[in-house]
């Protein structure tokens, strides 16, 4: 059976919106981070699928996906470092504890 482009796009769209949903509803900083990663990875699937199916003679999409993976790794590293710093400060990484600045 042939796997068509649409299947990849459906998967990536579901991943994107699952990520958005998780970003809004999760109560733990790490879970929020995982949701954001899900969004970033959906983009990589998009790029790879578009490149493979629609424009197979150039490699632009693959390279964009590679760079996106690298950059998202850097983002995760910084976000986890900040999360650890928060844990050291308040011994907790639940989102509802990060509310000292409400006006």
């Amino acid at each position: 059976m042939e796997i068509r482009l649409e299947y990849y796009l459906i998967i990536s769209t579901i991943m994107l919106f699952a990520g958005i949903y998780g970003f809004i509803t999760r109560r733990n900083l790490l879970a929020v981070l995982i949701s954001v990663e899900l969004m970033l990875n959906s983009v990589d699937i998009n790029f790879a699928a578009f490149n493979r199916y629609l424009f197979p003679d150039a490699m632009e999409g693959f390279f964009f996906a590679l760079f996106a993976i690298g950059v998202s790794a850097a983002e995760t590293a910084v976000a986890i470092a900040i999360t650890i710093n928060i844990y050291r400060n308040i011994r907790n990484i639940q989102v509802h504890h990060l509310d000292t600045m409400k006006h």
């Binding site: 970003f23 981070l33 910084v78 976000a79 900040i82 999360t83 928060i86 990060l98 600045m101």
Partner: peptide, 10 residues
């Protein structure tokens, strides 16, 4: 400051 960092990066 830690809170600001977390909010900004996310």
């Amino acid at each position: 400051s830690a809170e600001a960092g977390a909010k900004y990066i996310l």
